[in-house]
Design a protein around this nucleic acid. Sequence first.
RNA 1: GGCUCGGUAGCUCAGUGGUAGAGCAGGGGACUCAUAAGCCCUUGGUCGUAGGUUCAAAUCCUACCCGAGUCACCA
Length: 508
Amino acid sequence: MSERTYYVTTPIYYISGQPHIGHAYTTIVADVLARTARTSRSSFFLTGTDEHGQKVAEAAEHAGMSPQAWCDALVPRWQQLFASYDCAYDDFIRTTQPRHERVVSAVFEQLRANGDVYRGTYEGWYCVSDETFWLESKLIDGNCPTCGRPVTRLTEESWFFRLSAYRQRLLEHFRANPEWVRPRSAYNEMLAILEGGLEDLSISRTAFDWGIPIADGSGVIYVWFDALLNYISAIGWSSDNAAFHARWPADVQLVGKEIARFHTIVWPAVLMALGLELPRLVYAHGWITVDGQKIGKSLGNAVDAFVLAERYGADTIRYFLLREAPFGSDFSYSEEKIIARRNADLGNDLGNLLNRSISMITKYFSGVVPLSTATTFSDAFTTLPPRYTEAVLDLRFRDALEDAWTLVSGLNRSIDEHKPWALAKATDDSEAQARLATVMYDLIAGLRWLAIMLAPIMPDRAREMWHQLGFTDDIALQSIRELQWHDLLPGHHVGTGAPLFPRLELTS
RNA sequence: GGCUCGGUAGCUCAGUGGUAGAGCAGGGGACUCAUAAGCCCUUGGUCGUAGGUUCAAAUCCUACCCGAGUCACCA
């Protein structure tokens, strides 16, 4: 048996509107994980769109389109966004695709057959003028909280998922696996919900028909129940056992913190009902904010993610998103901060290091990596690549990048310590010449490491770096974990340097 | 309102009982291979507030203030 495939998912994005930087953020993170995992094993990266439900139906109606036409028109926007950020997903699932609808219907039938889905009645307060159901706790003096009119008691037949039956097993799983939901705050919150008790979940709707129909005509399937199943419908559950079992359970399921509940309580209960393993990790990350305010079209502060990619380059934004704040917590975005990171970390530290190194080796050794009999770096940094990889796969991107930058700083410092320009002038001093060879060898060796390590995060700039360093094979195939300093062979010809990250000034 | 998380230098954050840290920004210096970049030195904080526990608290406890999320059918 070969090693299991690394399987990472993003939420499928609800297409009631346009995509924004927040969608790109989650997808970039998944892409970085997939690319990193791929340097040592096979990996599968799934994203897609969630297309059913009332909101989509309404959005389509306002646009004068059928729901399906609306979705068909919008899906390319998401795909273009992800392409503009170099997100190389392996599959893009849409919940309106037959391969998905088949699975949802099959799951519904299977769970009905074993009693986890049953016919019951839903009772609640309903505001006729707003056409909205309200929880008793939300009512204001027994009236509708938005329009103030009296609400009526409504009783409706509905299909329920027996969520409450899984409470004990969920609790056990949470307690036995305190790391399965991260960050810790999300774990605590979800555990508290479990401890407070669970009620069964109504999983059918009759007020509208944009959804997957229930076989007996009793409405459509609730969009969340539908949506969650994408994670298994896309990889062949019930249709391709070999493919399915090579991938499931997912290694990482990324979600925004606002949907942690569905992914850490409802979703695992459904998996238990199906007799499937639970994902290894659900990571509920924070949001990108503008001045501390959540990005959303209703706030009118949505950053045009397409413009950002074009203005700063996908790799600069990718780096910024992973480096600026610890993954998991919210962080405030601004173009000033992007430019600061770009110029300081990428331009001054990394880009300039590459440029000055190539310039010197070209000047002093005609671009040929010299034979070195000593070394200035390998001892201090031998454990960096595996440590870096572990941090990335553990979603500690900030730590990983800080760690990688110790090598960047170390190389810059070494140049100033050894003053190659002075050594080069001492042409009749053989010791100086040997030291010059060592310094230059170590610079190129270190830059080679950096290009390979950074490739999952900045695929385009790392590739450019790789080419400037004179390598012609595929950088994505290089194993980060197994990097060896002396895999750089003397005699190797470097290429031509050109600024990797030209300085930017704030425009507008 | 209940619950969860956060509030540490101008900015972004590390630090979970033992003399306050990093990067960036600011100031000074020596150099020149380089994207006026890099290197060295340096200014800067009563660790949200008020109490408490302790020989010792940013770190534990209590209350409060501020910000964010969530509280079950919008997704």
